[in-house]
C-alpha cells in the first residue's frame, strides 16, 4: 500500500517534470528561436485558431447560455423570498464572469480540443509520422505543439468573453421573459454590479486553463505508445487530467484572488 502510494507519487512527479520540460521547449520556440532565424509559421497557428476557437463557438454559446438561464432560475428561487428578485441580474453576471464562464468554457474546450490534440498527435506518433518529422529535421514540438499552444492561449480567453456574453444573455432571457424583471432595470443592475476586475479575474483564469489544456493534450499525444489502444488511453487521459488540473487551478487562483481582495 505504502509502496504503491510512493510509486504513484514518483510517477506524478516524473510526469510533471516532463510537462514542464515540454513547456520550456514551447517557450524556447516562441521567444528565443525566432531570433535565431527559426520563425513561427503563422499559417499553422491560424489553422489551429480556427479549429480551437471558431469551431468551438457554438458549443460554448449553448453551454454558457443555458447555464445563465439555470443560474437565473436558481437565484430567483432564493432571492424572490427576500424580495430582491431584480438582483438576479447581478448574481448571474458576476458569478458567470468570475467563475462559471471561464471554467465551463475551459471544460468544453478541454473535452473538445484537448482530446482532439491528444488523438491527432497520438495517431501521428503510432503511425511513425512524428518519427518522419524528426528524420526530416523538423522539430515535432515546434511544428505540432507550438501552434496548438499559441492558438489555445489566445482563443480560450476570447471564447471566455464570448461565454460571458452568452451567459448574461441567457440570464436576461430568463429574467425578462419569465421572471418579468424590467429589461432596462435588468441591464442597469447587470452593469452596475459587474466590475471590470470581475472580467479580468475570469480572463486570468482562462489563460492558465489554456496552458493546461494545450500542455496536457500535447504531452499525452506525443507520449503515446501501443497503437490504437494507446491513442484511446492518451485521449482519455488528456481529458481526465485536463479536467482535474483545470478545477485544481481554478481553486488555487480563486483562493489567491479572494485572499488578496481582488
Amino acid at each position: 500500500m505504502v509502496s504503491g502510494i510512493g510509486a504513484f507519487t514518483i510517477s506524478c512527479l516524473k510526469e510533471t517534470a516532463q510537462v514542464l520540460k515540454l513547456l520550456r521547449e514551447i517557450l524556447y520556440w516562441i521567444f528565443i528561436a525566432p531570433f535565431k532565424g527559426k520563425p513561427l509559421k503563422i499559417k499553422l497557428i491560424f489553422d489551429q485558431m480556427i479549429f480551437s476557437g471558431w469551431h468551438s463557438t457554438l458549443i460554448v454559446f449553448f453551454v454558457t447560455m443555458f447555464t445563465g438561464i439555470v443560474l437565473a432560475m436558481q437565484a430567483a428561487y432564493q432571492l424572490e423570498k427576500m424580495g430582491a428578485l431584480m438582483y438576479v441580474a447581478s448574481l448571474v453576471a458576476v458569478s458567470l464572469c468570475r467563475e462559471l464562464s471561464p471554467v465551463l468554457t475551459a471544460l468544453v474546450v478541454g473535452g473538445r480540443v484537448g482530446s482532439a490534440i491528444a488523438a491527432e498527435l497520438g495517431t501521428m506518433k503510432v503511425s511513425e509520422q512524428i518519427e518522419a518529422l524528426e528524420t526530416m529535421a523538423i522539430n515535432p514540438v515546434k511544428f505540432l505543439a507550438v501552434p496548438r499552444f499559441i492558438a489555445l492561449f489566445f482563443m480560450l480567453p476570447v471564447l471566455t468573453i464570448f461565454g460571458d456574453a452568452a451567459g448574461i444573455f441567457g440570464g436576461y432571457l430568463m429574467g425578462v421573459h419569465s421572471l418579468k424583471i424590467n429589461p432596462a432595470l435588468y441591464t442597469q443592475i447587470t452593469f452596475k454590479f459587474l466590475l471590470l476586475k470581475d472580467i479580468y479575474t475570469g480572463l486570468a483564469k482562462s489563460f492558465v486553463f489554456a496552458m493546461i489544456i494545450a500542455l496536457i493534450g500535447c504531452r499525452q499525444g506525443l507520449n503515446t505508445r501501443g497503437g490504437a489502444e494507446g491513442v484511446g488511453k492518451a485521449t482519455t487521459n488528456s481529458v481526465v487530467l485536463s479536467f482535474i488540473f483545470i478545477i485544481l487551478a481554478d481553486c488555487i487562483i480563486t483562493g489567491i484572488f479572494y485572499f488578496s481582495n481582488m
Binding site: 503511425s127 511513425e128 518529422l133 528524420t135 529535421a137
Partner: peptide, 20 residues
C-alpha cells in the same frame, strides 16, 4: 545533428505521410 539530418531522406514502411 539536425544539420546532418537535412542530408537524409527516409521512406517509412507505412509511408508516414502527414494525414492532414
Amino acid at each position: 545533428f539536425d544539420k546532418i539530418r537535412r542530408d537524409f531522406g527516409m521512406l517509412f514502411q507505412y509511408s508516414a505521410l502527414l494525414d492532414s
